[in-house]
Simulated assay, not measured.
Amino acid sequence: MSEDVLADQVGYYRRRAGEYDATAYGDVTAARERIARLVARMRPAGRVLEIACGTGLWTEALAAHAATLLAIDAAPETIAIARDRVPATVAFEVADVFAWSTAERFDVVFFSAWLSHVPDSHFARFWDQLRGLLAEDGRVLFLDEHVDEQAKEAWVGDEIVERTLQDGRTFRIVKQFIDPGTLVERLRGLGWDCRIERDGTDWILGEARPLPGH
């Protein structure tokens, strides 16, 4: 995976910040209701880290359950939007997810629509990074798009799609829709126990824990 594509991916989300909610969710009020329902179903609690928080719709729901919440994203433009959605007690940090580290440990690490942007070349290292972020008995919770949704993208490579903003600018980003069975087996090979459920035709919900001895 070219680092140029990963840089383009960050640039895309920085420039999409102002139009993201409308173009990603359409009816934001309905999306908020669905997000609140799903977050309650996933039961985040304690010290929570959100990776790739975006414009904060999920951060808003997580804040209602977490004892403490730290949200990170590579795009300062999306974090600026997210800050206005949540209590002042939520902490934010602009950071490259793949290069970020902290001495803090979390009961829950959460990410929405992020795993599908992790290239194969970074996959194993990313899950090693997650293991190091978890407290004892910690969990990784995630949401993403089911593989059935892949036809909607303009594919230009095995894991690369081209996206166009409302102003006509185009960007290449990583996109890997989730096949639940394949992901469960892949994570088991890396020392994780993962359970995945489907919500509607488009989204999957996952929970992963390190296997004993890993």
Rank of each mutant, 00 (worst) to 15 (best):
G26L: 07
T68G: 03
Y13V: 08
E104T: 14
G11I: 10
I51S: 02
V161M: 13
G206W: 09
L130Q: 07
G56Q: 10
Y12P: 00
D193Q: 10
F110N: 00
G11V: 01
Y25F: 14
V156I: 15
A88E: 15
Q150F: 12
A208S: 15
A36L: 03
G26V: 07
E145W: 15
L134Q: 11
R34C: 08
A135Y: 00
A31E: 13
S112N: 12
V48T: 11
P212Y: 09
G26H: 05
L190V: 05
R139K: 14
G168K: 04
D167G: 11
L70S: 04
A103S: 15
L165G: 01
F111H: 09
D167S: 06
A80S: 14
I35D: 10
I173N: 03
D137F: 03
F98K: 04
P119I: 08
L70N: 08
W100R: 03
W58S: 01
V156A: 07
G189L: 10
T78F: 00
D193Y: 04
G213S: 12
R105C: 09
Q150C: 08
P210C: 06
E50F: 09
E136W: 05
V174E: 00
R131F: 02
L187A: 11
V140Y: 02
P210T: 01
T68N: 04
P87R: 04
A75T: 00
V118F: 05
R15I: 06
R186D: 04
I72Q: 01
R139V: 15
V118I: 13
V10A: 13
A151Y: 10
R195I: 00
A31N: 12
A64Y: 05
E162V: 15
T182K: 10
E162M: 04
A124Q: 07
V156T: 13
V108R: 08
W192M: 08
Q129T: 08
E185C: 05
L211I: 03
E197R: 14
T78D: 06
E149N: 12
L143A: 15
A154T: 14
L70G: 10
D128N: 13
A154C: 09
M1D: 05
D21G: 04
W114Q: 06
L130E: 08
D120L: 12
R209E: 11
A64F: 03
D4S: 14
E93Y: 01
Q166R: 01
G181W: 07
D96P: 04
S2H: 12
A82S: 14
P212N: 03
R15K: 15
R83P: 09
R195D: 10
E60H: 12
D120S: 13
A45S: 06
L141F: 02
D179R: 13
E145G: 07
A124T: 07
A7N: 14
S121N: 11
A40C: 08
H146D: 15
